[in-house]
């Protein structure tokens, strides 16, 4: 049974959520803010919130995992995990509730790099 004092619960549901979002958003803005994928602060914050939900759906609640999911949503699309073949493969091959945020993120980087290289050659 999960046991929470009311203060702890409030912390999770309100202050912690804001704190957590703020941390993820700040780091995301630091790295992606100057890029073309940044949709503006307000919309990016919505992406962080949506990423929190998506990561939780995969039973991943670590902030770094949420950050990577949010970065992939920014860099590809909000449904990258269903749209992108490389992401679908990872999701399909997942065993149990193994965390896959980093696998997705590394695969996303590889995909970007592949296109960068292709663009250079052309």
């Amino acid at each position: 049974m999960l046991k929470f004092e009311s203060d702890q619960r409030r912390e999770i549901t309100a202050a912690a959520r804001d704190e957590s979002e703020r941390r993820i958003f700040a780091l995301l803005r630091q790295h992606y803010g100057p890029t073309h994928v940044w949709p503006g602060d307000a919309q990016a914050l919505e992406v962080v919130r949506a990423a929190t939900f998506k990561a939780a759906g995969y039973e991943m609640n670590a902030e770094r995992d949420v950050f990577k999911i949010a970065a992939l949503m920014l860099s590809f699309s909000d449904d990258f995990d269903a749209r992108e073949p490389w992401a679908r493969e990872i999701v399909a091959a997942r065993e149990g509730n193994a965390p896959i945020a980093d696998l997705l993120y590394q695969a996303g980087i590889a995909e970007v790099r592949r296109h960068e290289d292709a663009a250079r050659r052309s």
Partner: peptide, 10 residues
């Protein structure tokens, strides 16, 4: 960020 649990409904 590490393993800190992300807040929010999930």
């Amino acid at each position: 960020l590490g393993d800190k649990q992300a807040g929010g409904d999930c």
